[in-house]
Design a protein around this nucleic acid. Sequence first.
DNA 1: CTGAAAGCGCTTACAG
DNA 2: CTGAAAGCGCTTACAG
Lengths: 336, 336
Amino acid sequence: MSSTLSDVAREAGVSKGTASKALNGRSGVSAATRERVVAAAEDLGWKPSYAARALSRSATGVFGLAIARSSETVGAENFFMAFVAGMEEELSHSDRALLMQIVPDVGAEAALLERWAAERRVDGIVLMDARVDDPRIPVIADAGVPTAAMACEDLGAGIAMLLVDEEERMRTMLEHLASRAGGGHERIAYIAGPPEFLHVARRRRAFEEICAARGIGASVLTSDYRRASVARWGREILALHEDEGCRAVIVDNELLAAQLLVQLRGADLAVPRDLAVTALEDSILCTVTDPPLTALGRDVGENGRQLARLLVELAEQGPAGVVVADPGAVVERGSS
Amino acid sequence: MSSTLSDVAREAGVSKGTASKALNGRSGVSAATRERVVAAAEDLGWKPSYAARALSRSATGVFGLAIARSSETVGAENFFMAFVAGMEEELSHSDRALLMQIVPDVGAEAALLERWAAERRVDGIVLMDARVDDPRIPVIADAGVPTAAMACEDLGAGIAMLLVDEEERMRTMLEHLASRAGGGHERIAYIAGPPEFLHVARRRRAFEEICAARGIGASVLTSDYRRASVARWGREILALHEDEGCRAVIVDNELLAAQLLVQLRGADLAVPRDLAVTALEDSILCTVTDPPLTALGRDVGENGRQLARLLVELAEQGPAGVVVADPGAVVERGSS
DNA sequence: CTGAAAGCGCTTACAG
DNA sequence: CTGAAAGCGCTTACAG
């Protein structure tokens, strides 16, 4: 069916080895021969067999990304796809591809990474959503697969890092709230994600420390990112507003913030007049709520490109430097 | 580094061929030998090399999905990720993976598919967003790669189909609008997507035919899915409402519908009292707008699983049957 | 039931 | 500059 290198070599009247060198732009082939081989390849519509090349080069040209999220949340968060799109853009420059697989939980993800490593299925791994006591780290350390991660602290195990300064991000948002006309909130609430995520823990700590330093009351609510719990926070936020004078709430992501806005709609309280609501992630979703959501925006596509570059560097040349991500800026809309 | 089949064979005291048979559960190996081989493999932590297996079996265990969408829209639409998640779920049962690549346009996508085929990079291809005169179809027909698509009509070229009855979907939505208290709209508008998409053309035709048959005035606006054009429709819809008594608008997807809602917010017109707004796709986004959006929901994850099954069947056993997708049902919310 | 050999389609030293 | 050979790590007829 498809033609092979042997066909091309025969057509050009040279050996397979010479044909290979000519086609790969290696030196040690005369210009005339190279031309003849290239023409023959073109003629036959020859393309190198992916599997054969991967086997002989012992490199797959593929980076793996396992995602331990429910299909419910993976689709809902814009962050994820924008990030992946950025990675792919960068990877396409070096003719690499991304192998994505959705798994039920981190345990399954760790197992998958281990298998990928053992099967030499990928040249490197992208780690998302780093966790406290992350089971994937020892697997990566053992396997020694080149790995890159976007996280708020160095993960060790030789993992190339795109570092996110969550403290600065939190500070930026708190400063925005403080600067509002009639600012000087005496109490601010933070609706955090599940505490097993490293970035959540870091954000929470930053929130509490900064508030304490400024003499602002800090209330933290925890969300499991599920819709069912939204009604509960609505009530809790209302109670915090009425009983403790809470006048602003920071929400971990924009989807949660939008849902909170819906909960608050029926209540006897106006956003942003009585209560400001802001999100720590931005997306188009923020523009279609009522009021539109103020959010901390960042260039997620660029982050994806940065991480891809880090991983390529690590896979090709060994230990890469640490890159610090742009912390982003507040996009003011109607909710604050 | 990683152990190979030779290591396992030596450890178990058998030949490579026998070890291979034992590990792959083939017949012609004594139970005792099989046990010894399996134990040796376990011992050494052996896993088959992906590339070697792909080469000798001439099958990659990978299906390819090229996406010709801007990273802007790929993230915004929930449909896409929910669909992919469904596919992956199904594929993971047969130990297959999805190779996804984002490309700038259909031309690039066609070129990529051609390359994938020539490199024997994938065992099959998933085709999304079928178009009028789709440049990918001849490529697939030529290459003969097993392909499956979700679309509103048979695409030929031996492509396995998950058929969506766009006419029935449109009818369902129109019937919902007709059944509203004070129904009997004299004019309905439809904001359609780019006409090069097959499903858009089909929806539009259905919209016009059904309206004509029922004596309802039909106005069609065309959107390129870009945000910049949203303000324009806002004005056009208002004009249709005031000048021609248009009292309902159907929007191609929920993101567009949500943006229309925002445009309409400042106007002297109430949704749904003066104008009903509904979307032909549903997602969590519909629940956070004000008012929440009535939408035509369907089980997109199930669609993904169905398409994956079709593709597996086609790749393994040749020509598969046609499956008709569930047309979905109206999820009534506040906007209609 | 088991082993030796050939083959999948490339790449890469090694001679000439 | 060019060719013949070995190797990447599996699978699969073919003998025995």
